[in-house]
């Protein structure tokens, strides 16, 4: 039986190999996928990282290099730039 604090399933269960048996360990879950602020589609090129993992990964690996990268999807950025030109 799991201990009381591990019953709620808020932590994910990971079986780790130990000598001669497998042991249950509990780890925190990944954050949700990043979405476009305009059209709410899932963004590509934005990894799902816990804060301590995000700290150690370089900035260039965490979002696309274009303007509004990591906030808006590519379609919405194109539309936004086009609209700004027309104004």
């Amino acid at each position: 039986m799991p201990a009381g604090r591990y019953k709620s399933r808020s932590l994910r269960r990971v079986f780790t190999k130990v000598i001669s048996k497998t042991k249950l360990t509990y780890k925190k879950r990944k954050p949700k996928i990043a979405h476009c602020a305009n059209c709410k589609t899932p963004l590509k090129g934005v990894p799902r990282l816990r804060p301590h993992q995000a700290q150690n990964t370089p900035k260039t690996q965490k979002r696309p290099q274009r303007p509004f990268g990591g906030k808006l999807c590519s379609k919405c950025t194109r539309a936004k730039i086009k609209s700004s030109i027309q104004e």
């Binding site: 290099q65 303007p67 950025t77 194109r78 086009k82 700004s84």
Partner: peptide, 10 residues
């Protein structure tokens, strides 16, 4: 022209 896509967008 104005570039729309990529790192040079805008």
């Amino acid at each position: 022209c104005v570039k729309i896509a990529g790192r040079d967008a805008g």
